[in-house]
């Protein structure tokens, strides 16, 4: 049994200790908001509606980039230096929000952005933005593989582990390290996205 397991098991059993937070893997109250966003994105694409596409792409992209940079470069290193109980407490409250928020922002940004690029003719071979957009596809592709193949499974596994009566601290520490490193990498890659998107907007 490792640190977190001991601390959490002890906390659960000690009447005087603070009550253990119930970890919810997917915050169900957020699902209607996600559904509304997905419907809005689909309607924007179906109607090829310039304002709505720009709104989805700019708002989604700004939040995605800012959150990735903030989590990867500010929250991640701080989290790595916190005590294990503090890290566990923070993770239990922070991760469920990320499970819903990030995939929704990514879907909103990419789907609307692709349609916007087509509508504005930026994907046409003769467009000065064509090469920049292909570069952005590549950056997003690398980030998608890291986020979907490594970061999200680690995130969900930590939450599932924390729901157990006796969470395994070794598993949580291993996966949190993975989360912090991959969030840092995707955060740095967002700098490339910022350069590309500001180039596209000003050509």
């Amino acid at each position: 049994m490792t640190d977190i397991g001991n601390i959490r098991a002890g906390t659960a059993e000690a009447a005087a200790g603070p009550p253990r937070a119930q970890v919810q893997v997917v915050p169900l109250r957020g699902l209607p908001i996600v559904a509304a966003v997905v419907v809005f994105v689909i309607a924007s694409i179906a109607g090829n509606w310039l304002w709505a596409l720009t709104f989805c792409h700019v708002v989604g992209g700004a939040l995605w980039t800012a959150i990735d940079l903030f989590v990867g470069l500010i929250v991640g290193p701080i989290l790595g230096r916190l005590s294990i109980p503090a890290r566990a407490e923070f993770t239990a409250r922070f991760m469920p929000k990320m499970v819903l928020l990030m995939p929704t922002l990514v879907l909103m940004t990419l789907a609307a952005g692709f349609q916007l690029a087509l509508r504005e003719g930026n994907l046409a071979p003769g467009s000065p933005n064509h090469a920049w957009l292909i570069a952005s596809f590549c950056v997003v592709g690398v980030m998608a593989v890291i986020a979907l193949g490594v970061l999200e499974p680690a995130n969900i596994t930590v939450l599932v582990e924390m729901r157990k009566r006796q969470p395994d601290g070794e598993v949580i520490a291993l996966l949190m390290r993975r989360f912090i490193y991959t969030a840092g990498i995707t955060g740095l890659m967002q700098v490339a996205t910022l350069i590309i998107m500001t180039r596209v907007a000003t050509q």
Partner: peptide, 17 residues
Amino acid sequence: LALVVIGGILMASYVPR
């Protein structure tokens, strides 16, 4: 997953051709 993402990028880079 990485291979389908690369394939998807190749396909998307040609749209609407």
